[in-house]
Each structure stands twice: as C-alpha cells, then as structure tokens.
Simulated scan of single mutants.
Amino acid sequence: MDRLIYTAMTGAKHILEQQATTSHNLANSTTTGFRAQLDSFRAVPVISEGLPTRAFVVDATVGTDFSTGSLQNTGRDLDVAIQGKGWLVVQADDGSEKLTRHGSLKVSENGVLQTQSGLNVVGDGGPITIPPEVTIAIAKDGTISSIPMGTKPNAVQVLGRLKLVNPPESNLVRDSDGLFKTADGVNADADAAVSVAGGMLEGSNVNVVESMVTMINLARQFELQMKLLTNAESNATKASQILALS
C-alpha cells in the first residue's frame, strides 16, 4: 500500500506535466519551424531509513522531436526554409549564438537582417546589412544577393551568406526563449551541406491528431492514478478497522 501511494501520487503529478507539454505542442501546431517537445517517465526508488519498498515516478527526459515539417510556398523574398537537417543562426540579446528553423525574416530600420522577433541573423562575417530599395534573392547555399530597383537584372551584388549549421542533435538543448543552443556552449561551425529554399517556410512538425489522442490517453491515465489513490485509502481504512477489532 505504501508503494502504491507513492507511485500513484507521483504518476498523477507527472501526467499533468506531460499533459501541459502536449497542450504546448498543440498550441504551436501552426508555429513556423516549431519542434515538438517529448517527455518520458521512469521509476526511482525512495531512499530512506525504512525498507526499500517505495518508489516514485520522475520525468526522466524532456527531449525534442527533430523531424522536419512540411514546406509551404509563400513567394516572399525574405522567407527561407531549411531543406532537410540544419539550422539558421541568430544572435541572442546577450551576444551568444542561438539556432532556429523559423525563416521568416525582415529588415530592421537600420537595414540589418533580423528575425520577426528582432534578433539579428548571423552571416559568415557577422550580421548582414541590406541596403534600401533593392530586390533580395536568397540562393540554395544561403547566399543573399540584391538587385537595385530600376536597373538591369545582371546588376547583382552579393550582400552576404547565411550561417547555416548542422550540429549533432544530441548536443542541442531548447532554451527558455524557444530557440536552441549547443549543450556544451560552443558555437557550431558552418556546414556547406545545409541548403535552403527561398520564398518558402517550414511548418511545425506537430501531428495534431496524434497530440489529441495523446491528451485523451493522458486523461485516462490520470483517472486511473486517482482510482489507485482511492483504493489505497479504502485499504488503509479497512486495515485500521481490522487492527482495531484485534
């Protein structure tokens, strides 16, 4: 009974946490470049002075589904999608490099290429500056070219190249801002094998139907844990009654 209480209690607690993770994934099912979060449970024995009969449940890992999402054609010059594996590099507020698959870019008031949230996009030589009144084209290798409006198409000027990286997925962690970074804190090197598609965006990799089924299963599991706690309370009451009679 003692073991049952600990297992059911902690199981119910972490099922609620996993339900919150699933809800978060569903809320981001239309977020560009979003990567679904994953949870897993494991049993851990309770370390105490008594007998090792008790165990509880912990959230062993909070991982990420790195599978790619579907590409959507937008026709916008500053939209870019990673084809296959790889990441765009952006500069965080503290100056560190973060990784994202959200390729909807914009040009700031100062002419700096940024994400929609205002983070500078990192190029091979640092931030990329876009001159005014030009047409932008992004090549497959991340090279950004401009054509001044009103001139011949052959008057092309290379402005820079996106820093595209592909570090091992085992070395990536999700930060509190939703962006990814390397677990060891070392900036990833540019990878020439990573390619992009201009005028396109990558959708979220969240499967809405699968997430809805998961939420239903988690709700049923939570009800089961509550029933186990009720049974444990009933067993304790009956045991007390038997001991009182003896």
Rank of each mutant, 00 (worst) to 15 (best):
D2A: 09
I5L: 15
Y6R: 06
G11L: 07
A12M: 15
A12D: 03
K13Q: 12
A20V: 06
T21L: 11
N28C: 11
T31H: 07
R35F: 03
Q37E: 15
L38H: 05
S40G: 09
F41Q: 07
V44Y: 04
E49Y: 01
G50Y: 05
A55F: 13
F56C: 00
F56I: 00
A60G: 04
T64I: 14
S67K: 09
D77Q: 14
Q91N: 13
E97A: 12
K98V: 09
L99V: 04
H102K: 09
H102M: 08
G103M: 05
S104Y: 01
E109M: 04
L113T: 06
S117Y: 02
G125S: 12
I130A: 03
I130D: 03
T135G: 06
A137E: 13
K140T: 13
P153A: 11
P153L: 08
V156M: 12
Q157A: 12
L159E: 10
R161S: 07
R161E: 05
R161P: 00
L164Y: 01
L164G: 07
E169D: 08
N171M: 10
L172F: 05
V173C: 00
V173L: 13
S176E: 12
F180M: 14
K181R: 15
K181E: 12
N187F: 01
D189C: 00
A190M: 02
D191Q: 06
V194C: 10
S195F: 01
G198M: 09
G199I: 13
M200H: 14
S204K: 11
N205M: 12
N207H: 09
S211L: 05
M212T: 13
M212N: 07
L218I: 15
L218K: 08
Q221F: 02
F222R: 02
L229V: 09
L229I: 15
S234D: 15
N235H: 08
T237I: 11
K238E: 13
A244H: 11
L245T: 14
S246F: 08
